[in-house]
């Protein structure tokens, strides 16, 4: 399964990337597992996406919880809690 992953705001700055295509191992099925998978990259990923950090996620432009299932070709996004208005 291949997904496009986007990062915004402070996460985009810390990770020094705004977007990438990732081919996922077969055992990565949820957005939470993807987040865990990315933390395995070490610094700065491990800290920025660590469990307990306030990170929100979206699949195809809809805010989702960590147990949401990934779909092939989906656009997944990780970002900090929003601060507009």
């Amino acid at each position: 399964m291949r997904v496009k992953v986007k990062f915004f705001a402070s996460l985009r700055e810390v990770l020094k990337t705004s977007e990438e295509l990732i081919d996922l191992p077969h055992d990565i099925k949820t957005v939470g597992q993807l987040r865990q998978y990315l933390t395995n990259r070490g610094v700065p990923w491990a800290e920025a996406l660590a469990e307990g950090r306030a990170v929100r996620s979206a699949i195809n432009h809809h805010m989702v919880e960590l147990d949401a299932l990934l779909l092939d070709g989906a656009e997944v996004a990780f970002f900090p809690p929003v601060t507009g208005g």
Binding site: A9, S10, A77, F79, P80, P81, V82, T83, G84, G85
Partner: peptide, 19 residues
């Protein structure tokens, strides 16, 4: 809007900029 719409503010202060 304030809790669900994906906007983020970065402020400039005397100590530099911060999210």
């Amino acid at each position: 809007l304030k809790t669900l719409a994906p906007f983020w503010k970065k402020e400039d202060t005397a100590d530099g900029s911060r999210w």
